[in-house]
Simulated scan of single mutants.
Amino acid sequence: MAMLMLRGALGLLKWALVAVGAVALIFTALIATPLQRPPELRSVSDSVKGIDFSRQVPLEQFQARDGTWLGYRHYAPKGPATGRGAIFIHGSSGSSGTINFVLTAAMAAHGVETWALDMRGHGASGTRGDIGYVGQLEDDLVDFVAHVRKSAPDLPLTLVGHSAGAGFSLRIAATPIIQDLFVRTVLVAPYLGYDAPTNVEHSGGWANPDIPRILALTALRKLGIDCCAQLPVLAFAVPVNSEAILTPVYSDRLMRNFATRGYRLDLPAVTHPMTIFGGTEDEMMISGKYAEAVQAIKPDIDVKLIEGVNHMGMVTNPKAVNAIAEDVATRGANQS
């Protein structure tokens, strides 16, 4: 009997040591795989050429529930007001102060009162490249809508997102209660998640994930160890010395929050009208597969492709910008 008990104890000790060894290997992966920033992606960097930044409105701030001041820009409607409003969510690395203001200014020019938010971890909002917890971006957006409602209590709001911001907008459109803050959602060149058929590998050279570190953090969470989420796991192909304007890397928790949960998971939960715009020359996304991917799950989603426009052109090219602005200005108040 004593020998059996001893053997049992030794067996348990062996498996305990194996578990400790596995966790040690995971932590080694966290430390031993430094994140590599990809070389500058010229198609993104060159998109600033010829942009007139004098049309950009000044940065404002509001205070989120945790006391942090977050940045945004407010574009008052020009010309006849449509009685519609829009909140714009920028893409990865960007902010309200980058070139996507061409689209937000265009929506205002079409009579749509428009707000562009610096998502926490970007621009003038919080710690660059990081957030406090997964779910904080949703909390921030709820707080921002409450701030907007102080001056526009009854304005129908459309949520408009570009690229990663479009993925986050899909996340919002699928989130109970929060989804009802918006009458409609417009996704511009959306990143639909790592498993979407619309992805170009590494987003065409724009993004470089630290796969070993991501897998290690995922394994730790499955073991009930929720730590190290502040570690950087995703780097972008931004120009050297551009950190004052752009966010070069994301922490694990920012990467997980500033995205869809997965288009197959989120799309069935969408309850309000949604439109997707893509450019046929998008070097980061395979726009021709948007309709097939999303309409197989939710057939009533509109998908519109703009000929001859690349990823950043969707927020700067006059043809794309005017089409999106016209769509936001004419839909969403009393029709789908």
Rank of each mutant, 00 (worst) to 15 (best):
A64T: 13
D139C: 04
V188Y: 02
D154S: 11
A219T: 10
L35C: 10
K304N: 10
T127H: 07
A2N: 10
T104H: 10
F168Q: 05
G132R: 05
V233L: 03
L181N: 09
V134K: 11
D52E: 06
L6H: 01
A216Y: 07
V249K: 13
L117N: 08
F62S: 06
L17A: 14
V321L: 11
I286D: 14
D252Y: 15
V240W: 08
Y290H: 03
S125G: 09
I99G: 04
L13R: 02
Q36M: 09
Q179H: 12
S242N: 02
L254Q: 11
G165S: 07
R253N: 15
V240N: 12
L220P: 05
L4Q: 07
V148D: 05
C227T: 06
Q56V: 07
K298C: 10
R331S: 14
A229Q: 15
K304E: 15
A164L: 08
W69L: 15
A106D: 08
M284N: 01
V57G: 05
H90V: 00
L159N: 03
T104E: 07
K298L: 14
D282R: 04
L141T: 02
D210Q: 12
M285N: 14
P58E: 14
A86D: 12
A29S: 14
I26K: 05
N310A: 10
V321K: 12
V57C: 06
G308Q: 10
S45I: 07
F88D: 06
D140T: 05
L220S: 04
G167T: 04
G332M: 10
D327E: 15
S47K: 06
L157E: 08
T218I: 03
P299R: 14
V145Q: 07
G71M: 03
Q335I: 05
H147V: 04
T185M: 03
G83N: 00
G308V: 01
M1F: 12
K319Q: 15
K298W: 06
T316K: 03
H90N: 12
N257K: 11
N100G: 15
T260S: 12
I177G: 00
F182T: 01
R37D: 08
R128V: 15
G129P: 04
I301C: 05
G50Q: 04
K49T: 09
V303Y: 02
K298M: 11
A235Y: 08
D302L: 06
G279S: 13
N322R: 11
V186F: 00
L25N: 09
M312K: 02
R184Q: 13
F144N: 10
S125T: 12
Q36F: 00
P268L: 14
Y263R: 02
A237P: 01
T316P: 02
H90F: 13
I225A: 07
F236E: 10
F53W: 09
T175E: 12
A320W: 04
D154H: 14
L6R: 06
G91E: 08
I286M: 04
V309P: 02
L41G: 05
L217R: 00
G71P: 04
G205H: 04
R84E: 09
D143N: 12
D302P: 00
R264Y: 10
P39A: 15
A219Y: 08
S93F: 13
D46A: 11
R171V: 02
I51C: 03
E201H: 02
V145I: 09
V188Q: 04
T98R: 09
P34S: 07
L217H: 08
T175Q: 11
L35G: 05
I31G: 01
S45H: 11
T104K: 01
